[in-house]
Computed example of a mutant assay.
Amino acid sequence: MTDVGLGSGKVVVNRAMSLDGFIAGPDHAMDWVGEYLPPDAFPEIMAATGAMLVGRNTYEVARRMAPQDTTYDGGHQFVLTHEPPDDPAPGVTFLTCDLEEAVATARGAADGRNLEVLGADLAAQCLRRGLVDEILVYVVPVLLGDGVRFSPPGLGRIDLEPFDNTQAGAVTVLRFRVRK
């Protein structure tokens, strides 16, 4: 994989996607991702990541999948929500501010490295407001047939510029710059 943006401090939407365009299966199932993308699959991307901004639904899905480990290896984790939980996980900061402030806070914690945005709705909000620099997609060779789409209805047109694509085993990695 070429230029991962180490030291560039970009805002990157990062997600695995089935060939038919789903980032999660029915009932937000994500077990299929681990079959193709083990946690250490792309160490250069994790090294370039300083923090993650996660939507509340994505956080809850990850927590159900691995209740003993709710932190990611991508630096400090921030969860943007209207209602923080009563029992916050250690190492996770819950933000109740507006989107721009949340992105700025998480970028500050990334310490010059990339901020990854996880969650379909949160990513769409960031894209609508012009806050995203890149989109990184791991296309997994599976058809899910139903679930959570890559982007929610109503996102609108976002023009992208492809700048890298690689094959890593069965996974195709696509990278795009967001045209602003």
Rank of each mutant, 00 (worst) to 15 (best):
H82A: 04
L122S: 14
Q125A: 15
P85T: 14
L122N: 12
G112P: 01
L136E: 08
H82V: 09
A102L: 07
V92H: 03
D98L: 01
P85I: 01
V79G: 14
R113L: 14
T96D: 13
R107I: 13
L95Y: 05
F94N: 10
V140S: 02
L95I: 08
R113D: 14
T81R: 14
T93P: 10
L143Q: 03
R129H: 11
L127M: 07
G91P: 00
F94E: 07
A106Y: 15
L136W: 09
C97A: 15
P90R: 05
D133S: 04
V140G: 00
P90K: 01
I135G: 14
D111V: 01
D87S: 10
L80N: 01
V117I: 09
V132G: 02
H82G: 05
V132I: 04
A106I: 09
L95W: 07
F78P: 12
L127K: 03
G74Y: 11
G108W: 12
T105Q: 15
P84A: 08
G75L: 00
P84S: 01
G112V: 00
V140M: 00
P85D: 05
A110V: 11
G130V: 09
D111A: 06
C97T: 12
D98R: 00
H76C: 11
V137C: 11
F78W: 08
F78R: 08
P85R: 15
A89E: 04
P141V: 03
L95A: 15
L143I: 09
I135P: 00
I135W: 02
G119I: 06
V140L: 00
A109W: 04
E101H: 13
D111C: 08
G75M: 04
V140K: 00
G130T: 03
D133M: 01
Q77K: 14
T93S: 05
G112D: 03
E100H: 15
E83I: 13
C126R: 06
A123W: 07
D121P: 13
T105S: 09
L136Y: 02
R107P: 11
E116V: 13
P88L: 10
V117A: 03
A102W: 06
A110D: 08
R129P: 04
V79W: 05
A120L: 06
C126G: 05
A123V: 12
H76E: 14
P90E: 13
V137E: 01
A102Y: 09
L95D: 13
G91C: 03
L95G: 15
G130F: 10
A123G: 05
E83Y: 09
L99D: 12
V140N: 00
T81P: 07
A123Y: 09
P90S: 06
D121A: 15
P88F: 01
P141H: 02
V140P: 12
G130D: 12
R129G: 11
P84R: 07
V142T: 02
V79H: 11
G91S: 00
L143C: 03
L118P: 08
L99V: 03
A123H: 05
A89D: 09
D87A: 11
G130H: 04
D111L: 11
D86F: 12
